[in-house]
Amino acid sequence: MSDTCKFKIDGKEIIAKKGQTILEAAKENGVFIPTLCNFTGVKPKGSCRICSVKINDRFMTSCTTPVAAGMEVESNTEEISDLRKSIIELLFVSGNHFCPSCEKSGNCELQALGYRYQMMVPRFPYSFDKKNVVATGPKLLKDQDRCIKCQRCMKTIKDDEGKRYYAFKNRGRDLEVVMDEEMSKTITDELAKEAMENCPVGSIIYKGVGFSEPIGTRKYDKQPIGSLIETN
């Protein structure tokens, strides 16, 4: 029995390994599906919904849905693009994303998705919910204004024993991702930089450096997010 199968995304034939998710197969076949909470090496959980696609007239998250032979997936349609754009807009209005003053600007995945989906203005009113900046640790600060609660830091930044540096605090609308104060005192330089790198927005910032890359040379200044996948 063959261990590959074929299915279609927007009419394009995709060859996938059995057991792969739609997102993984799309990526390998040069089709970009946007993601935020998903991170290579971390078990996908489909919480941000931005990778939603339509299969059999139902919305499914492509990061959690395994491929099946013959399935027809809609991804880059007007309806789905608008749904994705509305998720981006909701994230922009529910946090306080002041791009001009953010160190991550130009390297921010949320911002890059805003560019890709041409968000000129969010359709929702801004909440301007005041949140805290926690900057007590020696190497990292956590700006809750920008956090989108994707959990990427929680799942990837761990010490040698596998203990997590970040965790959830509070519940419901007060939910926050916070850093363990004691552990933050001893975090290595390398791991601290990785934490900033893994954060899709500018919520985790490595202290002491800022705006080091000039405008025009940053990750998403010239090329839209996903263009590397599409040219593969």
């Binding site: 922009f92 306080n96 002041f98 791009c99 001009p100 003053s101 000129m120 203005v121 969010p122 801004y126 301007f128 919910d129 005041k130």
Partner: peptide
């Protein structure tokens, strides 16, 4: 940005 979302002056919102 300021006309669109308040911009830097809007950083006082919530204070």
């Amino acid at each position: 940005e300021c006309a669109i979302m308040g911009g830097l002056p809007a950083m006082r919102n919530g204070i």
